[in-house]
Design a protein around this nucleic acid. Structure first.
Length: 594
RNA sequence: GCCUCAGUAGCUCAGUUGGAUAGAGCAACCGCCUUCUAAGCGGUAGGUCACAGGUUCGAAUCCUGUCUGGGGUACCA
């Protein structure tokens, strides 16, 4: 808000000064070039603008340019090529009052025109979610919340990979685990021996098998299928039932955890039901072929992805007649573009291990006549799990630590905050022992503590409390209803006491920094949305919390002076609102007590 | 080999479209609880922004090359 105000002032000043700047053409693109920043050195004002970039156009030295523009502005000091703005207390009061009156701080319409379909996590229903899925889950859901806060229309979608080879593998694994369990019960002969290596060796497969056998009817049918003493892997009815059952159990397990993590999807798209059962794939293939982008070679059907910059052509239908992973995925993405929702942005979060997959998918999208500029993939670098100080490759361990284990250990709030507190471009080390043992040192608690502290102050302000010495109950600092009225009808002028009561320059400086930062929340949200970078929000919240803790330590909020107390409480209220809103954008709870 | 992400304080990482003296947390050291939550605050110390060139008035940021690490480079998913 304050930044925008300054930019507006600057625009007017530029127009007035254009004549003296060699007839500089002042338009929006020129104004967009001005970058407002908070100088480190307090002598450089509260906001600063560097005008050096105008030197070439105007053929004038930067200090001269700054001087000319500065002469058309108030509250500005010119040093070298810089315009240093000083923010007045009345502007700060106005910004604070605006925050108090805003139902949802940071809410804006910067992405109002966007209709976004965001697909993320999209795990195979073949096992528990791992730590990497946790990163995409936290990242995706936070991005959804942030985009919506900027006015975008967003649909979150989970693509269930339930039609491929992996579903067959998990079925086989569950089958053998069931055999194993029944052998132990003496219900199947010992001659049925397990293969040396199961496609899914994890122990959870035993749980699935045992749940399957808990159904007496299924158990009886399973045993009956082995009347000849041979393995029943070829028994289609049995295999199908096992497959459907396993998928249901494993998917529900994933959904349960995501739900617990407050990660929400509007759509759960089953590859099998949505693509195969509705026969969508041949249609897409036909359109590709019709446009001449496919060819047959070596008994396989190929996509000419090299025509779209891919390094080699890709197989769509293998020589055995089945599709590669790519093919249904092309049909799926084709469908995303064709939906009646008319999305103008198809956004995916993929792990960095799928990076090489982008050119062919992008090529297919182009080949099918869609706009590749609307297709956007957010690549997240992988997560390293650190157990007992050792880096473990995910999934390579027989007994791996699942996302569920991690969430049990460190909690939803800490997991989510940690997962989005670093740029998705950086690979992330997740030290489980550290996160578990030192959970009280987790940055999320720092922010939550600041929020709880605000709430505590707001509670104490209106509640009668016992006198420290006498134990007698004394009246609250302010009356609850009076405070409520004050807040509802707050005018910037009523905040004058907030500033006047502070005499020390350091106190004033801390307050000003805090207010300017609170005022910058909307910008933080916009930046986070534009760059799909929730870590801007975590960073922002940590800064607010630090500045609040700092202010708290030098300035008492609850005083015997009701008018002063009320003014200071407005600051606390604004901080509390912003912390709560920021945490909500990250799907992290904002406790009122800790 | 090629594609891609990263390399910033002892450790983990921020640093937005290039701007004034490079930041935080943890670890280390020194202080602060008779008053609203010490899960807190103040202070000290800690840097060849991997390296070398280039562009620019100005580079941690952009370009080129080199080195190191992660990921990818299937008729796997």
């Amino acid at each position: 808000m304050i930044k925008q105000y300054i930019l507006n002032q600057l625009g007017t000043a530029l127009q007035n000064a254009a004549l003296h700047l060699n007839n500089l053409a002042v338009d929006d693109s020129l104004l967009a070039g001005f970058k407002l920043e908070r100088p480190r050195n307090p002598e450089h004002g509260d906001y600063a603008v560097n005008v050096s970039f105008l030197a070439r156009q105007t053929k004038m030295p930067p200090p001269k340019i700054a001087e000319v523009i500065g002469s058309h502005l108030s509250n500005v000091a010119v040093i070298g090529g810089y315009l240093n703005f000083t923010i007045t207390e009345s502007m700060l009061a106005e910004a604070l009052a605006a925050l108090i009156h805003s139902a949802k701080p940071g809410l804006n319409s910067s992405l109002q025109a966007e209709r976004i379909l965001l697909e993320y996590v999209s795990a195979n229903p073949t096992g528990p979610l791992h730590i990497g899925h946790g990163r995409w889950a936290a990242l995706g859901d936070s991005i959804v919340r942030i985009l919506r806060h900027c006015g975008a229309l967003v649909t979150a979608e989970f693509y269930i990979n339930d039609a491929g080879v992996q579903m067959g593998n998990i079925t086989t694994a569950v089958y053998w685990r069931a055999v194993e369990l029944l052998k132990a019960e003496g219900l199947l002969p010992d001659s049925l021996s397990l293969p040396e290596v199961l496609p899914y060796p994890g122990e959870y497969v035993i749980d699935v098998a045992s749940m399957y056998l808990a159904d007496e009817v299924r158990k009886a049918q399973f045993i009956a299928a082995h009347s000849d003493g041979q393995a029943a892997l070829e028994n289609e009815a049995l295999q199908n039932d096992l497959k459907v059952f396993s998928k249901k159990v494993l998917l529900e397990n994933q959904q349960g955890l995501l739900n617990r993590m407050r990660v929400h999807f509007e759509n759960w798209i089953s590859e099998k039901e949505y693509l195969y059962d509705r026969d969508l794939i041949p249609g897409t293939l036909q359109r590709l072929a019709g446009k001449g982008f496919t060819f047959e070679a070596d008994d396989a059907l190929w996509f000419k992805s090299t025509e779209f910059g891919d390094e080699k052509d890709r197989v769509l239908r293998k020589s055995d007649g089945s599709y590669t992973y790519l093919t249904p995925d092309i049909a799926y993405h084709d469908d995303k573009f064709n939906r009646p929702d008319r999305y103008n942005r198809i956004l995916n979060i993929w792990g960095a291990d799928h990076h090489g997959y982008i050119p062919r998918m992008c090529g297919a999208i182009q080949a099918l006549g869609h706009d590749p500029a609307q297709f956007e993939v957010l690549l997240g670098q992988l997560v390293n799990l650190i157990v007992e100080g050792e880096r473990t490759r995910m999934g390579k361990r027989r007994k791996m630590l699942t996302l569920q284990d991690v969430v049990d250990e460190v909690g939803v709030d800490a997991t989510r905050f940690w997962m989005v507190s670093k740029s998705a471009d950086s690979s992330l080390d997740f030290d489980v022992d550290l996160a578990a043992s030192a959970s009280s040192e987790n940055p999320v608690f720092y922010v939550q503590y600041a929020h709880a502290r605000c709430c505590s102050i707001l509670r104490n302000a209106v509640e009668p409390a016992p006198n420290v010495d006498t134990g007698e109950m004394v009246a609250p600092f302010v009356q609850a209803d009076a405070l409520q009225q004050f807040e509802a009808a707050l005018k910037p002028e009523q905040l004058a006491l907030l500033f006047d009561s502070l005499s020390e320059p350091r106190e004033k400086a801390v307050l000003k920094t805090l207010l300017l930062h609170l005022d910058g929340f909307e910008d933080a949200v916009k930046d986070a949305a534009r760059l799909r970078a929730p870590h801007f929000i975590t960073q922002y919240l940590l800064d607010v919390a630090a500045q609040f803790h700092s202010f708290y330590s030098i300035c008492r909020i609850l005083t015997p002076e009701p008018a002063l107390t009320q003014a200071r409480l407005m600051l606390i209220r604004a901080i509390q609102k912003i912390l709560a809103q920021g945490l909500e954008l990250l799907g992290v709870s904002a406790p009122e007590k800790m």
